[in-house]
């Protein structure tokens, strides 16, 4: 899951990015409106944390421009402006949630989780696929009742695939959603991660769809043993 944080206060920006990365997301950040708008308009983010009072381009303008361009990722507005008239303006511009400063980081994380879940059509924090259970709140992965340890990249890969379980996810899409923009992208690393993940999970969860990508799906039990 790759997120974008647009916030002009350096301290808050740093804190949010650290907290989100700690929670297992790939995070890009921008300190002004123009850069933020450009990133959000060109990179495929799964969710955006957006301040309203930004230098160069304000949050509402950015959001409206994205929506006009068909960028439909969930956006959480984070601002000190907490009047209802300002909130309504934010929602009408296309925001999916609104959090007023000062905020508790836990609340921000919970709202982000909820946004990601809603965007992929899940009802709870817990993603289940076959015998694999992934709790997006605690970041724990349980296979057949036993917890397993994953690196942050492995966790991100699994979480992304499980958020979109039953759908083929291309390698490019995985790269775009797993790494922040500063990461040295190399599609071979994906294969390496998939291999390691399969080994750690021990169950047949991640299918390779030749020429297209990967798909998380529970193993299909068939009488003749074929898939």
């Amino acid at each position: 899951m790759r997120l974008l944080v647009i916030e002009d206060d350096k301290d808050i920006n740093r804190q949010i990015v650290a907290a989100l990365e700690h929670a297992g997301y790939a995070v890009d950040h921008a300190l002004d409106g123009e850069e933020g708008y450009f990133l959000g308009d060109t990179e495929p983010y799964d969710a955006v944390v957006l301040d309203i009072g930004l230098p160069k381009k304000d949050g509402i303008t950015i959001l409206e421009a994205w929506r006009a361009n068909g960028r439909m990722m969930p956006v959480l507005i984070l601002t000190a402006r907490d009047r209802w008239s300002e909130k309504v303006q934010g929602f009408d511009a296309g925001a999916d949630d609104y959090l007023a400063k000062p905020f508790h980081m836990e609340e921000l994380l919970a709202r982000i989780r909820a946004l990601l879940r809603r965007a992929t059509g899940h009802a709870t924090n817990e993603l289940v696929c076959g015998s694999v259970r992934l709790d997006t709140k605690s970041g724990r992965v349980i296979v057949d009742g036993a917890p397993i340890k994953l690196t942050s990249h492995e966790y991100r890969l699994l979480a992304y695939l499980m958020h979109h379980s039953g759908r083929i996810v291309s390698r490019t899409e995985i790269i775009e959603h797993l790494y922040d923009q500063d990461f040295d992208r190399d599609s071979n690393t994906i294969e390496v991660f998939v291999g390691r993940l399969r080994r750690k999970l021990g169950v047949d969860l991640i299918q390779t769809v030749r020429g297209l990508g990967y798909m998380a799906a529970p193993p299909v039990e068939t009488t003749d043993g074929k898939r």
Partner: peptide
Amino acid sequence: VGNLAHALKTPLSVIVNEAYS
């Protein structure tokens, strides 16, 4: 009043988050 709110709330957010981390 709005500006004051904004000016106070942002540093307060920083303090709260720093304490949290």
